[in-house]
Structure formats: C-alpha cells, structure tokens
C-alpha cells in the first residue's frame, strides 16, 4: 500500500495561506434546503412531544378525539351567531389550557391560517356590491350606479353592517375549526390519529399506506438532509443555478431509485412475515372510564351549543 500512495498525497496539503475577506459566499439554496428539511423533522418532534405530555386531552383515546373533532366542526358550521362561536372558542381555549399545549404556537397558526382562509376569502363580501345593507364604512362614490347583466354596482360603495357580520362569522368559524383541528393534532400522535380513522370505516389497506408514508417521509427527509450536508462538505465556491438544478435532478433520480428499492424490500419483508393481500391492524383497546366520561361531557356540551 505504501508504494501505491500517490506522490501528491505525500506532499504537504495546499500551502496557500489563508486569504480572508475575498467576499461573501452565497450558498443559500443548500442552507435553505437544510433548514427546511430540519423544520419538517422538527415539526414531527414537536408534535410527538406535545402529544406525549401527561395532560387532559393527551390521556383521552384517539377515537373519542376524532369523533369530538368531527362533531364540533359540524356544530361550528351550523351555528349562525357570534356568541355561540365565542363560547365554542372559549371551550377550545380551556381544553388547550388543560392539555398544556403551547398556546402561543397554537394561536399563531390559527390566526395566520384563519386570516388567509377565512378573512381574506370572505372580505370582498363585506362590500355592498356583494352584500346589500346599511353602509357603515363608505369607501368610494361613483358618479352614477352601473348595471351589467345580472350585476349591479351602486353609486356609493362601502362596507355594510350585514357584510361585515358575515365576514366575522365566516372568519370565526374557520378559526374555531382550525383551533380544534390543531388542538387534536397537538394532543394525539399521528399514528394514533390514523388508527383512529378506523372508526370512520376507512379501509385498513388505506390506513396502512398512510402509516407507512408518514414513517418514510421522516426516513427520506433524513436521507435528503444528509445529501445536502454531503454537498455542502464539498462546496467551496458559489454554484450557479444551472449546476444546482442539475444536482437536484440527479438527487431526485437517486431518491426515486432508493424509494423504489425500499418499496420492494418492504414488500418482501411483509411477505416473509405472512402478508397475504389482507391487512390486519391490531385491535384497539377498550375505551377506559375517562374516555367515556370525557366523550359524554363533550357530547353534552356540543348538544347545549346546538340548543342555544
């Protein structure tokens, strides 16, 4: 071996001295990708940690929580007054508090997505062009009103009382539904949620596919993160967009190949353990007294909300 070591390897490594201050390097696509991938795994860990806490909703069986979520989403959609929506929001807040969920994180997400999918979408309907009614905030005064086909644009355009109430109503419904969904997600591990979907008669094979997908998302995210680190370890100059695209295309091909191979391996592993076209998932344990009592209390509260 000694005789085979090339002469350049025996020579001293680059003798070039350190020359700092030759400009800053932009390797943003690598850094951003690594951060993004780390973010995906981080979300998974945060969700798992939050779902493993010893608190109220975490102790309740996933089936009860899934039914609770569906029942309350229906109630939220049926209610037509802001008071009921506020009471439901209060109940969700109390549940989040007793479940020791990170309230800041929960409501930050609720506000963001509620603003995007609730307020922004509904906002145009606040104007008298869409919703007729008493103008409380005039915006524009035209010379005269216009009528095109079935559409009518009044002379004075503004936000109406009825329109703004409608926007508030829709936004509060979206925010309540989101808060409820995020709360159930934060207090139940995803594999448990997927298994709980069995109560909704989702086919076993479909549940198994989702479970495997969820698991392998994390495995492949880690592989992709390692690939980016390997690229970073050999990167000392700025790479152009074309080079970055070529690299990403090559790595996509690699991931595709690996996924296909892994898929074959998993199938062989399933066959070797007795798989014969039928998926059987381990049966759920029986509901405990706490699950029954919590389920009944939440059901009664839901009926009261429907009543008022």
């Amino acid at each position: 071996m000694e005789n085979k070591i090339p002469s350049f390897l025996i020579a001293r490594s680059s003798a070039a001295p350190l020359a700092e201050g030759r400009g800053r390097l932009r390797i943003s696509f690598i850094e951003k990708s690594i951060q993004h991938l780390a973010g995906v795994i981080n979300i998974g860990h945060a969700q798992w940690e939050s779902a493993s806490r010893d608190a109220f909703l975490q102790k309740i069986d996933a089936r009860v929580k899934v039914l609770f979520l569906l029942f309350y989403v229906v109630i939220i959609s049926l209610k037509r007054d802001l008071v009921s929506e506020s009471l439901i929001a209060g109940l969700i807040f109390m549940l989040a508090l007793t479940s020791r969920v990170d309230l800041m994180d929960l409501y930050k997400r609720v506000l963001f997505w509620g603003f995007v999918f609730g307020f922004l979408i509904a906002f145009p309907s606040a104007f008298n062009v869409v919703t007729q009614g008493e103008i409380i905030f005039p915006v524009l005064n035209l010379e005269k009103s216009h009528t095109f086909w079935i559409y009518h644009i009044p002379q004075e355009i503004g936000i109406t009382r009825e329109g703004s109430l409608g926007v508030l109503m829709l936004t509060s419904r979206v925010m309540n539904s989101l808060a409820l969904s995020f709360l159930v997600l934060a207090t139940t591990s995803l594999p448990e949620i997927i298994r709980a979907l069995k109560v909704l008669r989702v086919p076993d094979s479909f549940l198994m596919i989702i479970t495997l997908t969820f698991k392998y998302i994390f495995i492949f995210t880690k592989t992709v993160e390692d690939m980016f680190l390997a690229k970073k370890s050999r990167l000392a100059v700025h790479t152009g967009n074309a080079e970055s695209r070529r690299w990403i295309a090559g790595r996509l091909a690699f991931i595709f190949r690996r996924t296909r191979m892994r898929c074959e391996e998993i199938f062989k592993a399933m066959l070797s353990r007795g798989f014969a076209d039928e998926v059987r998932i381990y049966k759920f344990s029986r509901l405990a007294a706490l699950d029954w009592s919590a389920g009944i209390c939440l059901f009664i509260a839901g009926v009261i909300f429907l009543w008022i």
Binding site: A16, E20, G21, L25, D226, L229, S233
Partner: peptide, 22 residues
C-alpha cells in the same frame, strides 16, 4: 461564509460519510 476562509478550510479537511450513497 467568507470565500477565502471556506476555500482554505475545505481544501484541508475532507469528509467520508458513513453512507456512501449520499
């Protein structure tokens, strides 16, 4: 992030990953 230092460092330190595929 300094181009000069990065070149100096990367030229001198090589890394062989556990998983050669990556």
């Amino acid at each position: 992030r300094d181009k000069g230092f990065l070149k100096y460092f990367r030229e001198r330190v090589g890394y062989v990953f556990q998983d050669s595929d990556v």
